[in-house]
Write a protein that binds this DNA or RNA. Structure first.
Lengths: 126, 126
DNA sequence: CTTGGGTGTAAGAAGAATCTGACATGTGGC
DNA sequence: GCCACATGTCAGATTCTTCTTACACCCAAG
């Protein structure tokens, strides 16, 4: 069985913006019928390959699909994508809880934190 | 108990794009603690009132919140918003099924034609 | 070595979403 | 009248997302 995941605010945000797009919804629908590689998928759903590439990246960044570069028997590199078995509940409580852990806003100094700590070390006595 | 709703493609798309925004997630979180009126909510979550107005419209259009214009005992008009008790499941199957009913593209001009526009510009020859 | 099919990515145009700063309206109280 | 506080809306600037059009590379078959 599949447990219902409880994502953090940023994760949920990425998931929602990833799925909140007609093309990407269709991509998910297409992959629900089985894995596929990029060029073929692009032909099947009538989308340019670079565009599909962008959408797949967005879906993969949200953890909704997984891609793997494989070598076909004839030696060609082909990138296959398949669905990740995600399961999220969309309720006010889930959204409210996730909103509490949103790291957005002007908290741009997100990764500057760790640097600030280390730069406080020993004085430059040389 | 709350049954899990199965939206159409367009509905799900509106829901996802409505929730896929940090501000609107925080608005949902704020309303999860009780109903509130616009100006006060704007002050509490630190957002300009016109901006909050826009976000609330988006949430209401998606059916996630409901607003009602009420008259306070002192006669002032105040628009209260509260959460709608939504509950959606976010799984590949749900998305795939919804994607099939996407009325996407600009096939919006289906029955948008209702009446003949006043294209009779009379020649004002006096 | 050219063609066909696979991969990735970057630049810039086009479009949509977001946000601010006015403006307009109504009410009650001083 | 003026102020405080509520409502709504609009124009424009800004920013983000989406999409096209190129370019790069690799491998195999003709």
């Amino acid at each position: 069985m599949s447990a219902i995941e409880t994502p953090t605010g940023d994760e949920l945000l990425k998931i929602l913006t990833a799925l909140g797009n007609p093309h990407r919804m269709r991509i998910v629908a297409a992959l629900a019928q089985g894995r596929n590689y990029v060029s073929r998928l692009a032909r099947e759903i009538g989308v340019s390959r670079p565009l599909l590439h962008m959408h797949l990246q967005r879906l993969e960044a949200a953890g909704l699909v997984v891609g793997s570069l494989e070598l076909s028997d004839s030696g060609k590199a082909m990138k296959f994508f398949e669905l990740a078995p995600f399961a999220y509940a969309l309720t006010p409580q889930v959204v409210a809880e996730a909103a509490g852990t949103l790291t957005d806003q002007d908290e741009n100094e997100k990764q500057n934190e760790k640097q600030d700590e280390t730069r406080h070390r020993k004085a430059r006595t040389q």
